[in-house]
């Protein structure tokens, strides 16, 4: 069995590694979904497989008793080649997998169905079910259910990643003088040092030093020193020194000196100028 190396494979691996999920502990919610898969499809084996460079690592696994295999022996590496469900009704009759060591040897897998787990456009792995006996072709409804559950897995993994990312932001605020923190829409207005940290829509209006850190839409308006750090849509309007760091859509309006602008998108770097408005 071989897998097709896409041009974006390095980026896919880099993204997977940035999630820092490989080799982490079992997760109760992901385990629930794997249990559901076994129940819905009435099979002995289900797992969440993440495709690393040379191995598949199982974040959640039921029915096989293994935690990883080499990538070349993995069914799921075939699944992530394309954006569709990959199904094997009888492995012995399917030339793609009939030579697979887990088919010809223990535990003699005969049936497989997997749906890609896609985050930010990267197929990081697959949610799959397996059986030791062949199975007639799955219905469209069954394939849709597996895809739906794979999307839930993707979102759960992504949300947990975002939550971990947000913790340092919360922590940094623990040492700041005046601030408001929240989840959802967070707005704060102040004179002097104004700091806002939020997940969701975060807005800060201040005179003096204004700092806004947010995940989601982040807006900061200030006269004096204005600092905005955001993931997602980041807007910063300031008179005086304006610093903005953003990932995603970034908008900035500055009168005065714009000190640093770090942005992941190169276009935004170019577009960010001192003049009234730059947008990407």
């Amino acid at each position: 069995m071989t897998y097709q190396k896409e041009p974006s494979e390095e980026m896919r691996l880099e993204f997977l590694h940035s999630l820092t999920i490989l080799d982490t502990a079992q997760d109760i919610n992901l385990d629930r979904i794997v249990t559901l898969c076994r129940q819905i499809f009435d099979v002995p084996v289900a797992d969440i497989s993440l495709i690393d460079r040379d191995r598949q690592w199982l974040k959640s696994e039921q029915g096989l008793g293994i935690s990883e295999t080499s990538r070349k022996d993995s069914f799921c590496t075939i699944t992530i080649e394309e954006d569709r469900v990959f199904e094997v009704s009888d492995a012995l009759l399917d030339p793609l997998v009939s030579e697979n060591p887990y088919v010809v040897g223990e535990p003699h897998i005969r049936h497989y169905m997997g749906a890609p787990i896609t985050i930010a456009g990267f197929r990081i792995g697959a949610l799959c079910i397996m059986d030791f006996k062949p199975h007639e072709k799955r219905t469209k409804n069954e394939r849709d259910i597996l895809c739906g559950l794979a999307d839930v897995v993707a979102r759960e993994i992504y949300l947990q990643h975002l939550l971990r990312e947000a913790i340092p932001v919360v922590l940094s605020v623990a040492t700041t003088t005046s601030m408001s923190t929240g989840t959802g829409t967070v707005v704060s207005e102040g004179t002097g040092v104004t700091t806002t940290t939020g997940v969701g829509t975060t807005t800060t209006t201040g005179t003096g030093t204004t700092t806004t850190t947010g995940t989601g839409t982040t807006t900061s308006t200030g006269s004096g020193t204005t600092t905005t750090v955001g993931t997602g849509m980041t807007t910063s309007t300031g008179t005086g020194t304006t610093t903005r760091t953003g990932e995603g859509t970034t908008e900035s309006m500055t009168e005065g000196l714009e000190v640093t602008t770090t942005n992941d998108a190169d276009e935004a770097k170019k577009a960010s100028k001192k003049k009234p408005k730059s947008k990407d």
């Binding site: 939550l163 913790i167 923190t181 989840t183």
Partner: peptide, 18 residues
């Protein structure tokens, strides 16, 4: 009190991450 609020949020996040 604002520090207490941050600590409280931190605690919730730690729990949310199991």
């Amino acid at each position: 009190p604002e520090k207490l609020k941050v600590i409280s949020l931190l605690n919730e996040m730690i729990s949310a991450l199991n």
